[in-house]
């Protein structure tokens, strides 16, 4: 039997190693949920019982959440869960059928324009103008915010620097790589110096290097006090960036909380992934020694507060590969939206 112990197995699940110390430093005010909202002006986005249907299909169902100024709030859910519709509702690009939306103190969609003047958006799909260079895109986009050419020409170099595109200023967008385009979109979203950023799957389709660069840029924005609404289905992204998150499926909120609190609540123990054998047969062997077991494809996920017990049971079985690790958001996500939720 081959034993793979990749992560810090000795750490107890309730004290999961902090993956993002930077976030803690910058968001000290978020130490307790009840201290988040000191006054009305501390609320960046508030959705109250919002519903939205297209024909017979309910896309958003009685959804409520509140995002405090300066926090990074993750909206997680499988494809088609209604995440992008929530972004559209918040921007006033679609009216809700029911419920109320307030963004930066403005009622949406009635006064969405005034809210949008203080919002930066990174849409899910690339909307850069392919007829223009990087610099021209920033200029055109800045003018949409009513900014003067002179102001923009002064601001553009620092935005290009922020996006690490200084050397690409006069390159047509069509010639930029996927990661560069995404960073340029982020720079465009910052042209009006927004208080709030709405990022719809900002790193989908990027290679790991490009993704890490975006994450690093987003953390520096959080450090500057920006509020972020992040829509994603990358659990690692949510874990790295989000102070709080909300998992939705079929437009309904399933759970909301801080990433680590959710991991403790929903999983609360180490995970052993077992592969290389017949998972159905293995269930009967390890099942009694685990709090919960789940099969996904050819892998058996074993949630055990005493992982040693599980390993003892498997001793002597050949061809098995074991990976013991602390629980993560993906476990939470799969538990909430995965097999157990399917009917």
């Amino acid at each position: 039997m081959q034993l793979l112990t990749r992560a810090n197995v000795s750490s107890s699940p309730s004290r999961r190693p902090e993956s993002n110390p930077f976030k803690q430093e910058c968001h000290g005010h978020n130490n307790a949920d009840n201290s988040l909202f000191r006054s009305k002006s501390d609320v960046a986005i508030e959705l109250t019982n919002v519903s939205k249907s297209y024909g017979d299909k309910v896309v958003v169902d009685q959804l409520s959440f509140t995002i405090a100024s300066g926090e990074c709030f993750g909206l997680l859910g499988p494809n088609g869960a209604g995440k992008s519709t929530v972004s559209r509702l918040v921007l006033g690009m679609a009216p809700p059928d029911e419920g109320t939306i307030t963004v930066l103190g403005e009622p949406v969609p009635a006064r969405a324009r005034l809210a949008r003047s203080r919002i930066g958006v990174v849409p899910q799909f690339d909307t850069l103008d392919r007829e223009f260079t990087a610099r021209e895109n920033l200029l055109v986009f800045g003018r949409y915010f009513g900014l003067r050419t002179r102001e923009l020409e002064a601001a553009i170099p620092s935005l290009l620097e922020f996006a690490r595109l200084e050397s690409k200023a006069d390159v047509p967008v069509a010639e930029l790589s996927g990661g560069m385009k995404r960073r340029l979109t982020l720079a465009c979203a910052l042209i009006n110096d927004p208080q709030l950023l709405i990022l719809d799957e900002p790193t989908t389709g990027l290679d790991p290097h490009a993704r890490h660069l975006i994450w690093e840029r987003l953390r520096s924005l959080l450090a500057r006090g920006k509020t972020i609404l992040l829509t994603t289905h990358f659990m690692e992204e949510a874990d790295r960036l989000c102070d709080r998150l909300c998992v939705i499926e079929h437009g309904r909120k399933i759970v909301e909380g801080r990433p680590h609190a959710l991991i403790d609540e929903q999983i609360g123990c180490d995970v052993i992934e077992i592969y290389g054998g017949n998972p159905r047969e293995l269930i009967s062997v390890v099942g009694p020694y685990a709090q919960r077991v789940e099969v996904s494809g050819e892998t058996l996920f074993c949630y055990a507060s005493d992982p040693e017990q599980v390993r003892v049971q498997l001793r002597g079985q050949t061809g098995l590969r074991l990976l013991q690790r602390p629980p993560n958001l993906e476990d939470v996500f799969l538990r909430l939206t995965g097999r157990e939720m399917k009917d």
């Binding site: 909307t127 392919r130 009006n192």
Partner: peptide, 14 residues
């Protein structure tokens, strides 16, 4: 196809 309006609709333009 070009989504030019889509990006403009994310700004203070109506």
């Amino acid at each position: 196809a070009k989504r030019t309006w889509e990006s403009a609709l994310c700004t203070q333009l109506t």
